[in-house]
């Protein structure tokens, strides 16, 4: 089930790839600076902010 996704650290700007399971929230930390401000970058903007 897990797929690969791109992540960006909004603290230090580091870009990396990691496993990601849709619908399963997971605590994330930037592998470089340790921050939790890690944003998953969507391949294409599929309904960002579905509210």
């Amino acid at each position: 089930m897990p797929e690969k996704a791109k992540f960006k650290c909004l603290r230090c700007g580091y870009l990396y790839e990691d496993k990601y399971t849709p619908g399963v929230p997971q605590e994330r930390a930037c592998p470089k600076c340790g921050s939790n401000s890690v944003r998953r970058l969507e391949e294409k903007s599929t309904s960002p902010g579905n509210r």
Partner: peptide, 19 residues
């Protein structure tokens, strides 16, 4: 969701931090 929204509005998502 907020990061997406901020970006859409033209506000840098980096200004919202999570820890």
């Amino acid at each position: 969701r907020l990061w997406n929204k901020l970006e859409r509005l033209g506000i840098r998502p980096e200004r919202l931090q999570l820890e």
